[in-house]
């Protein structure tokens, strides 16, 4: 999809739908939304729907950030404690590395 060829109301619709869909535990959708519509929201000359697009871009960005912090802290916690959690850690693993505690 080429945003340059799209009508402004269509852009707003798309941006809003992406933002809404992100609530279905899809942080990457928010990440894509915030990057993809960044130019539209902040760098294009002003137009009617821009304010709303800008809002969705900011919200998507915040959502992405929160997700990133959560995921990162979980990954670090899990990797640090995998060995000491023993059976519990094994049960929630999909891949167990060989030759490691």
């Amino acid at each position: 999809m080429d945003l340059t060829k799209m009508a402004n109301d269509r852009k707003l619709y798309l941006c809003r739908r992406y933002f809404q869909a992100g609530f279905a535990l899809l942080p990457f959708l928010w990440a894509v939304n915030s990057i993809w519509f960044f130019n539209e929201g902040f760098r294009k000359p002003e137009y009617e729907e821009q304010k709303q697009i800008r809002r969705y871009v900011i919200y998507s960005g915040i959502g992405t950030l929160i997700w990133a912090v959560l995921l990162l802290s979980w990954v670090i916690t899990f990797q640090v404690n995998r060995a000491s959690w023993g059976e519990f850690a094994d049960n929630i693993s999909f891949i167990i590395p060989v030759g490691m505690p």
């Binding site: 059976e87 094994d90 049960n91 929630i92 693993s93 999909f94 891949i95 167990i96």
Partner: peptide, 11 residues
């Protein structure tokens, strides 16, 4: 033994 028998293991 436990790790060898894990059902959730993808590999």
């Amino acid at each position: 033994i436990r790790r060898s028998n894990l059902k959730t293991n993808l590999n």
